[in-house]
Design a protein around this nucleic acid. Sequence first.
DNA 1: GTCATGTGTCAGTCTCAACTTACATACTCC
DNA 2: GGAGTATGTAAGTTGAGACTGACACATGAC
Lengths: 109, 109
Amino acid sequence: MTSEDLLTHLAAFGHRQRLRALAELADGRMQISELARRLEMSRPLLYMHLKRLEKAGLVTGHLELAREGRTLKYFELAPFDIHLNITTITGAVAQDTEGHVNMKKGTPT
Amino acid sequence: MTSEDLLTHLAAFGHRQRLRALAELADGRMQISELARRLEMSRPLLYMHLKRLEKAGLVTGHLELAREGRTLKYFELAPFDIHLNITTITGAVAQDTEGHVNMKKGTPT
DNA sequence: GTCATGTGTCAGTCTCAACTTACATACTCC
DNA sequence: GGAGTATGTAAGTTGAGACTGACACATGAC
């Protein structure tokens, strides 16, 4: 894991509302509007948080058609378990310095 | 661990320069100025980062008098190992809701 | 048709962390 | 007395993330 990835994860975790959202999803999948009501936050705001969580790979979302034809978007937890210790950190930072020549993606060959 | 504590830790970790500082300190203790030179960042800026790390309990700093009478401040790693998984998060969030009556310090009676 | 529900997004505002520059102090060596 | 190095801090700028409000669209029920 590069420090880039590690920081993406840490940034995703590092907010109270997102921790609460993850905790809610621990019970099972839930649709956005329902989750917004439970967390008592505006839907656009929750939407932003969920996007961030999804980008980090901590949750997954997918649209579904309900019986009535209405489209509902459900989010559910993705499994994760990050050990935050000095070994993880030095490893991540080391990968950066190793790849400092091609820190930008691409140039694989 | 409350979510307050968890967020403090996550915020402390969640910055590239602080990860680099932690990685440097993995080799052993170091004084501020030396560390600033190695990381190629301004001393006040590093100072701020170290304060944040110290507040989260990830590093410890202490002044020392060098032979020449000069005061040097050394920082060294504190042991830490946080498992970032859904159990940790739900536990932290649960502690918040338990104490939601007196989330603010004080007002005990 | 209107009303209620759902999703998706945009244009703003606002707060705070990050960062720079500058200052003060203390010590050593010349 | 400098000049050099160290710590500690304060004032100011800046940029990103958090947040609100409003809009668009679709569907079902009345």
